[in-house]
Amino acid sequence: MSAFIDKMRRRAGRYLDVRPVAVRPSRGTLSLSFDDIPESAWTEAGPVLDAHGVKATYYVCGGLERGINLGLRQFTTEHLQALFAAGHEVGCHTFGHVSTLTLSPAELEADLARNAAWVAERLDGHVMTTFAYPFGDCALTSKTVIDGRFLCGRGVRDGVNVGRADRALLQAIGLESRRLPGYDLEALVQQAADQKGWLIAYGHDVGDRPTPYGCTVADLDRLLTLAKAADLDIQPVARAWSRMA
């Protein structure tokens, strides 16, 4: 019964209390994002991004620093400072990497405030303006909190944001080995180009043997190559958001 209730709560967050925003960039857009920030999301993905001359969004949980998650070493403060100095966006992923399904609005506010203070202390007062839901879990009650604190929130429901989107729960595709075989990346990129949509991709680790939630360097390079060939505007989430209207 509890599993069924959780499933219904996830669906409620996805489809109820939609906070509409127009998606009308001057041309199709791609945003790359990395959740949790495993070490390899910077040490392996960073050089690929640099070679393509693009910036990504890194969604950080302060509580994961120097820890192990999914069997992977996580980022250090030095990694976070280096990617921020390189011009990449740092966004919020909660402090404790916790599902919003398990938190009251007050508890979520407290966790977000803790992460905000943790990041500001390490990144010279940086204020995070975009959010990604851990596990893609969006409780209906969390949307008001996220909408009040951030420009936008990103989920994990597949699709390209076209025409009209939910600013508290934007659609995205998983740059993950468990999901990539099921996507037609060429078609998704072309849809973003043809319909002037916003394609957001999220991943975790990057390496030769990625977890089910990560990808290879070749996967990352392929998506960027396709996006450039389709003349997509490749921007971090916050910068892309500023170009939507």
Rank of each mutant, 00 (worst) to 15 (best):
S40C: 04
S40R: 00
A41Y: 02
A41R: 00
W42V: 00
W42N: 01
W42Y: 06
W42L: 01
W42G: 00
W42S: 00
T43Q: 07
T43I: 05
T43R: 09
T43W: 05
E44D: 08
A45K: 01
A45F: 04
A45H: 02
A45Q: 01
G46T: 01
G46C: 02
G46I: 02
P47A: 04
P47F: 05
P47K: 03
V48P: 08
V48D: 10
L49I: 08
L49P: 05
D50R: 14
D50N: 13
D50A: 15
A51P: 11
A51Y: 11
A51G: 14
G53C: 12
G53Y: 12
G53R: 07
G53H: 11
V54T: 07
V54K: 07
V54I: 11
V54Q: 09
K55S: 08
A56F: 12
A56W: 05
A56K: 06
A56R: 05
A56S: 12
T57G: 12
T57H: 10
T57A: 13
T57Q: 12
T57Y: 12
Y58T: 02
Y58V: 03
Y58Q: 02
Y58N: 04
Y58D: 03
Y58G: 04
Y59A: 14
Y59I: 11
Y59G: 08
V60F: 15
V60L: 15
V60S: 13
C61E: 09
C61V: 10
C61N: 15
C61A: 15
C61G: 13
G62H: 06
G62E: 09
G62I: 01
G62D: 10
G63R: 01
G63H: 03
G63E: 10
G63A: 12
L64F: 13
E65L: 11
E65D: 13
E65H: 13
R66S: 15
R66N: 15
R66Y: 12
G67Y: 08
G67C: 06
G67R: 04
G67T: 04
G67D: 11
G67A: 08
I68P: 04
I68L: 15
I68V: 15
N69R: 13
N69P: 00
L70M: 14
L70G: 12
G71C: 11
G71D: 12
G71V: 05
G71T: 08
G71W: 09
G71N: 08
G71Y: 06
G71R: 05
G71Q: 09
L72C: 09
L72N: 03
L72F: 07
L72E: 09
L72M: 12
R73A: 10
Q74D: 10
Q74L: 14
Q74I: 05
F75Q: 00
F75C: 02
F75H: 05
F75M: 03
T76F: 08
T77K: 05
T77D: 13
T77V: 14
E78A: 15
E78N: 11
E78T: 13
E78V: 12
H79C: 03
H79W: 03
H79G: 01
H79Y: 04
H79A: 03
H79F: 04
L80Q: 02
L80K: 00
Q81R: 13
Q81W: 09
A82K: 08
A82V: 03
